[in-house]
Design a protein around this nucleic acid. Structure first.
Lengths: 241, 241
DNA sequence: ATTTGTAATACGTAGGACATTTAAACGAAT
DNA sequence: ATTCGTTTAAATGTCCTACGTATTACAAAT
C-alpha cells in the first residue's frame, strides 16, 4: 500500500482556507448579498485564527469583488458586479494584446455581431432606439480632429446594439472585446480619408432596419459593415510591415 | 457645475495603492511574466510601508492570479491564465443562476454556435477531428444510467467545436457558458426518453460536415440541433410549473 | 556519487498597539 | 422641531516584533 505515504501537507495556506470557506458560504447564499459580515475580531474568534491570517483572506475576497470593506463601518457581501466579473478578462486580453489578437477580435466580431444585430432588431425597445439615435447624432457632430472621441462613439454604437438584445450574457460576452477596440482604432482611424462618412452611413442604415425590426436585413448590413472594417484593418496591417 | 463638488478624498487604502502600482508595472511589462519580485522586506523598504500593508496588497494580486507566492521561495509574476480570467465570470453567472438565465443561455447558444460550427469547419485540424471523434465514441459507449457523464460529454462536444475554430476568444467567450450547462442538463436530460440517440445522431452529422469542411451545412445543422434542445427545455419548463 | 545534516533566506502566522474613519447618540442653538 | 456640532463607541487600517515553517544551497559524511 502506498496509502501510507500519501500526501499530508494540504499546501493551502490558512488564509486561503478561510477565503474558501467564506466564498462557499456566499455561493450557497448562507451569506446573502447585502448582509453584513461579523467584525474582524468576531471572525478571528470563530475561526480560531489570528487577525493577520483572517485579514489576508478578506483582502483576497474584496480584491475579487465578493465583499466590500468600509473602514469604520464593517464588511458587507456585495453581489459581484459585471465590472468585477470581466475585470480580469480585460486584463487577460490586455496582456496578450498583439496583432494576432487583433485579427482574432475581428473574426469574432464578424461571427457574432450580425446575429446580435438580428436579435436586437427583434428585442429593441423605444429606449434603445433613442439611445442609438443619440449616439449617431453625437457621432455626426463630433469634431473630425477628435479621433479618440470618434472611435469611442463608433465603439459605443456597437455596444448599444448588444444592449438592445436585452440579453445580459450577450453584453457580458462582447464587453471585454469592445474594451480593446479603442486602442486598435487609434492606430487606424486617423489614416483613412472619408472613413467617418461611410461609417456614419452604415450606422444610419443599421439603425433604420433595427427600428423597423427587419432582423435579417440587420444581420446582413452588419455583416457588410464589419467586412469593410476588416478590409481597412488588413490594409493597415499590410502597410505597417 | 457639479464639478465643484466632485470627490476629493482618494479613498484608496495604502494596500490598494500598492496593488495598483504593482499591477500597472505588470501591465506595462516592466515586470515581465516569469520574473521574480523582490522580497517582501525589500519591497517594504522601497515603498516605505509596513510589511502588513505590503502583504495585503500581494494577497490581492495573488487572489486575482497575477502573481504566485511560494513559501520559502519567493514571488513570481505569472501570466494570467484563462481559468483565472474567467473564474469570476463563472462565479457571476453562478450567482444569478435562475430560469431566466437558462433561457438567456439558450438564446446565446442559438446565436453564436451555428457561426462557431461554420468557422470550425474551415479551421479544424486533424487533431480536432480525432478529439471530436473520441468524444462521440465515448458518448456512444457511455452507460445510459450515468446521466452526469452523458451530459458532460455532450457539453464537451460543443466545447471541442469551439476549440476547433482556433480562435481563443471564441473559446473564452463560450467556456463560462458551457460551465453552467451541466447543471441545467441534469434537470432536463433524465426525463426525455430516446434523447441520447437523437443527440448522437446530430453529433455524428455535424462531425461529418466539419470533417468535409462544409461550413454552411455545419451552421445549419447546429442551428437545428440547438433548436431541438430548446424545444425540450421549454417542454420541461412548461411541465414544472 | 549519493545521501544526510546545517545554515541562510523568504514567506506564513500570531499578537499587541495605536491611528483613522464611520455611525450613532446626545445636546445646544436657531 | 430641525439643524448643526460634539462626543463616544466601534470597526477597519497600519505598524511593529517575534516566531513558525518551507525552500534552497552547500558542506560533510558515507
Amino acid at each position: 500500500m502506498d496509502e501510507v505515504f500519501r500526501k499530508i501537507g494540504s499546501k493551502l495556506t490558512l488564509s486561503q482556507k478561510i477565503e474558501r470557506r467564506i466564498e462557499a458560504a456566499i455561493r450557497e447564499k448562507k451569506l446573502p448579498v447585502g448582509s453584513k459580515l461579523p467584525t474582524e475580531r468576531e471572525l478571528c474568534e470563530s475561526f480560531g485564527v489570528s487577525r493577520t491570517a483572517l485579514r489576508e483572506a478578506l483582502r483576497r475576497l474584496s480584491a475579487r469583488g465578493l465583499i466590500e470593506i468600509t473602514k469604520g463601518s464593517g464588511m458587507t457581501v456585495t453581489g459581484l458586479k459585471i465590472d468585477d466579473a470581466i475585470q480580469n478578462l480585460n486584463l487577460y486580453y490586455d496582456m496578450q494584446f498583439d496583432h494576432n489578437l487583433i485579427a482574432q477580435i475581428i473574426e469574432v466580431r464578424r461571427l457574432f455581431e450580425p446575429e446580435i444585430a438580428s436579435l436586437a432588431a427583434k428585442q429593441r425597445t423605444q429606449n434603445d432606439l433613442s439611445d442609438i439615435q443619440d449616439n449617431i447624432e453625437a457621432f455626426k457632430a463630433c469634431n473630425p480632429d477628435n479621433i479618440q472621441m470618434e472611435a469611442d462613439l463608433d465603439n459605443k454604437f456597437h455596444l448599444l446594439i448588444a444592449k438592445a438584445t436585452h440579453n445580459p450574457i450577450v453584453q457580458i460576452s462582447m464587453e471585454p472585446i469592445y474594451s480593446l477596440l479603442p486602442r486598435m482604432r487609434n492606430l487606424i482611424y486617423a489614416n483613412v480619408e472619408g472613413e467617418k462618412d461611410i461609417t456614419l452611413e452604415y450606422h444610419l442604415k443599421i439603425f433604420d432596419v433595427i427600428n423597423k425590426q427587419k432582423s435579417d436585413e440587420a444581420a446582413e448590413l452588419m455583416k457588410v459593415h464589419l467586412h469593410r472594417t476588416m478590409d481597412i484593418y488588413q490594409k493597415y496591417l499590410h502597410n505597417s510591415y
